[in-house]
Design a protein around this nucleic acid. Structure first.
Length: 152
DNA sequence: GCCAACGTTGGC
DNA sequence: GCCAACGTTGGC
């Protein structure tokens, strides 16, 4: 069982969206490094920190669990979808996704500013300047350290 | 294979 | 809204 962090823009899909839906595919990842992790390494039963990016309050907002691993992201094949990729091929899928289910919200949002202040997280891509990786691994000690900041 | 131009991400 | 950093594209 492994840990991950998934970024999302809450204006598009937030932890509350997931809470209401109960579960959801994690579609729309269009970055090869993130894609490789989704496709090859994220496994059923893994836990995920849901991180809100590009918004007023950036930070870790909740926890989800992987319920289905690695299958083709069919949104890439749908011209109506905002995630449509004309270069994707149904016979040789380029993009993949997993399904996750809501576990819980954090008791409060754990802000990026707090995460950046934690020496335990200095190796996480998340806190590095210019980082754009939207799916990244989280070690067990990083996971514990982050959730340790949930209650002040 | 190099690299400049371009579009996107994402914090502030 | 700004702008730095990054990934991708395409000409050569």
């Amino acid at each position: 069982m492994a840990y991950w962090l998934f970024k999302t823009e809450p204006d598009t899909f937030s932890i509350d969206t997931l809470r209401v839906q109960g579960s959801s595919p994690w579609e729309g990842v269009r970055n090869y490094q993130a894609r490789n992790m989704l496709r090859d390494e994220v496994k059923e039963g893994d836990f995920v920190l849901i991180y809100h990016s590009s918004c007023k309050k950036v930070g870790v907002a909740g926890i989800a669990k992987v319920t289905r691993e690695s299958y083709p992201d069919h949104f890439a094949l749908n011209p109506e979808s905002e995630y449509f990729d004309p270069k994707s091929d149904p016979d040789n899928p380029r993009w993949f996704m997993v399904d996750i289910e809501f576990v819980r919200k954090t008791q409060r949002l754990i802000p990026l500013s707090v995460l950046k202040s934690m020496p335990e997280l200095e190796n996480m891509p998340l806190v590095k300047r210019g980082n754009r990786l939207s799916v990244m691994p989280v070690t067990e000690s990083e996971w514990q350290a982050i959730l340790g900041k949930e209650v002040l």
